[in-house]
């Protein structure tokens, strides 16, 4: 499987005089976090499978500035934003798909006022539309048939941008037993990593937020908890580990589930 992916960068395409249909904004977690890298590769596999012409920024990509903004450093956020906008403008980018709801929210909602206007979608929305268009078809006898799966709403996809249906629709068409957590959709409970919490120790309390959440997952008796955010992925995975449920509960991103269900 060595470099079977062959993912072009915007710079490479430009040199060839080509433009992609969509820019895949990988995000910092997707670029560096080992678990998230796997999801990044899966998203690429999906894009290649359906023949959607895409590119990444590669080493020209930089943090959107979301964690800095949410931690109160507006200067750093706007420095990042304006530098990124300059690069995106240079490549005349019009449409972006992100793997991370935080990047998604920032690019979609906070860049326009600084001069960056793009159509921004999250990878769950892209997969949903590919399924609807018939470009992605589930393989016969895939491994998820009849399995009990639950979905954890990432705050920045759900409440922040009201994307609740896309990930659920993807799971439903797999003929799985989709079960909801007690706190779901607009009432969903945060994994604990947002607002720059990912990068600091939690404040003093009597419990970690991801433990509170994973207890709900355990109560749902789901075999798989689906995520759609690299931060949630880390928090849920850690929660499962702390509760020693690694043998019983699998944490998978919607993109990973799609790849496996389509045997890509």
């Amino acid at each position: 499987m060595q470099n079977e992916l062959n993912v072009p960068t915007m710079a490479e395409l430009m040199a060839r005089g080509e433009t992609p249909e969509i820019l895949f904004w990988v995000g910092c977690a997707g670029s560096f976090d080992e678990r998230a890298q796997k999801i990044t590769r899966d998203i690429c596999k999906i894009l290649q499978h359906v023949g959607l012409k895409f590119a990444i920024l590669g080493t020209e990509e930089s943090c959107t500035g979301d964690p800095a903004k949410r931690a109160g450093n507006e200067f750093l956020f706007q420095m990042q934003a304006m530098t990124n906008i300059e690069i995106l403008t240079g490549y005349a980018v019009k449409k972006i798909v992100t793997a991370c709801p935080h990047c998604f929210n920032t690019l979609k909602n906070e860049y326009p006022a600084l001069g960056g206007n793009y159509e921004v979608i999250h990878h769950t929305e892209l997969i949903q539309s590919l399924i609807r268009e018939g470009r992605l078809k589930t393989a016969d006898g895939h491994e998820f048939l009849g399995k009990k799966i639950t979905y954890h709403d990432p705050c920045y996809l759900g409440r922040a941008n009201e994307v609740y249906e896309a990930p659920r629709e993807i799971l439903q068409q797999l003929d799985v037993q989709l079960t909801e957590l007690k706190r779901c959709r607009s009432n969903g409970l945060c994994c604990g990593a947002g607002g720059a919490q990912m990068f600091k120790e939690p404040e003093a309390g009597n419990k970690d937020i991801n433990i509170e959440r994973i207890e709900e997952v355990i109560a749902s008796q789901a075999q798989i908890v689906a995520a759609a955010c690299p931060y949630c992925m880390t928090m849920l995975k850690d929660g499962v580990k702390v509760k020693e449920k690694e043998g019983e509960i699998e944490v998978l991103d919607i993109a990973e589930i799609t790849v496996r269900a389509n045997k890509l």
């Binding site: 960068t9 910092c28 796997k38």
Partner: peptide, 30 residues
């Protein structure tokens, strides 16, 4: 730790301490 995150973004373009040049290394992963 929050200040460290800030300086990582400033210097490496990511909240963690990884080199910008390694940003697309995931392509080679298995």
């Amino acid at each position: 730790s929050v200040n460290a995150m800030f300086s990582n973004i400033e210097n490496n373009g990511a909240p963690w301490k990884y080199a910008q040049a390694d940003r697309a290394n995931w392509i080679q992963g298995t």
